[in-house]
Simulated scan of single mutants.
Amino acid sequence: HNVTALQDVTDQLRAQNRFLEQLNHLTRTILLSENEQDVLPLLAQLSTDLFHASQAFIIVGDENQVEVFPPLKEGETAQRATLMTLTAQALETGKPLIKTAKSSNVFASIMVLPLVSDKMRLGALCLAWKQPHHLDEIQMQRGEQVASQVSLALAKLRLLKEVQLLAVKDDLTGAYNHRYLNLTGQHLFARARRYQEALSVLMFDLDRFKAINDRYGHLNGDLLLRQVARRCQESIRASDILVRYGGDEFVILLPQTDLETATHIARRLHTAVTSTPIYLEGTTVTLTFSMGITTLDENVPDLESLIRHADQALYHAKHSGKNRICTYTEAL
């Protein structure tokens, strides 16, 4: 009897050591990760191995968008609906949830572990078995340990993303800054060249901004720039990139956009910014702006030249009476 008991304890210790080694591997993977899209499918696979599950899913998101890692295939809507329902229940209670189905074409047993960090609900780790699977107290504890590590990973990755955004965003307007323009612009330029895609650039500044700034003060000038940036952001597409180039000057990168479409976007922006007065502290102002447009062609050697062409078209617009849109030509 003593020998059997000793063997049981030895087996338990070995199993615990194996679990701790795998957990350590999962933690190292987390610490080295920099991208949610890359690491979450890997963490799901490691969780599958840890618990000898048929499959593991990590579900993240908010009320606007939910993502499942690894992504579910087409036709797996029943699994998705089940996972979403159980995730919502687990996040509501903040406690692990176990569901066992007597007969199921999908999963016989599911354990859902809420992912929470600093009271922030991040999502859930879902472990699923196709055959009925008994989940004892030890497995529950291990599940919570793994969920805690995955929660830390998500919190770390989101903090990293916020820090990276701060490094490439303009503090005042929330538009992107010069650094982001160079990083992303070079990539878009290279891609446009390689795949023979269209790429257009808009550059504009506000007419008589200095006079407005001098008359109403710098705080109102800052408020004005923020509102202009907001109106622009609301008027452009998700793929377009708004950059504060300096002072009251902005650049907009338009990927996969030809001259005709760029001109249409420019007119829409002009209407958005100039058609409605902007409310400042104690007053309102009606703005006008001047804009230059250019599109990539075989004669443009690099991104700097493309932006310079937009700048030359803007200069022409300013010196042709302001409040107008000009397109770059070699004659400028």
Rank of each mutant, 00 (worst) to 15 (best):
G174R: 01
A317T: 04
V39F: 01
A155H: 09
T29P: 02
A15Y: 11
L154F: 00
D258T: 02
Q139D: 11
E197H: 14
G247T: 05
K119D: 13
L127D: 06
A192P: 07
Q141M: 14
L253E: 00
L269F: 08
S109R: 04
R324P: 03
I110M: 07
Q131V: 13
L160P: 05
S117T: 05
A167E: 07
S148K: 13
A101Y: 12
S320W: 03
L332W: 05
T29C: 10
D205C: 10
L72T: 07
D38Y: 10
A44N: 03
S117Y: 08
L42M: 15
M84Y: 04
D297T: 08
E304L: 15
R308L: 10
G221N: 07
T48L: 07
L181A: 09
L50I: 10
L183H: 14
I265H: 01
G123C: 08
I236Q: 01
A310Q: 01
Q256C: 13
L183Q: 14
A101K: 08
H52N: 14
L13E: 09
P255Y: 07
R324K: 11
A266Y: 02
K156P: 01
E260L: 12
V3A: 09
A153F: 02
Y328M: 03
L172I: 09
S320N: 15
A147V: 06
G221A: 06
T276W: 06
D258W: 03
V201F: 03
I278W: 01
T284E: 12
E162C: 04
G282E: 06
T27Q: 13
L223Q: 11
I236F: 03
E197Q: 13
R158H: 11
V273L: 06
T27Y: 09
G94P: 05
W129T: 04
F209P: 03
K119E: 15
S148Q: 14
V168D: 02
V168K: 07
L219F: 11
S239C: 08
E249V: 00
D207M: 05
A331Y: 11
F69P: 02
R237M: 05
Y328H: 06
V60E: 05
G247Y: 00
I236K: 05
N105S: 15
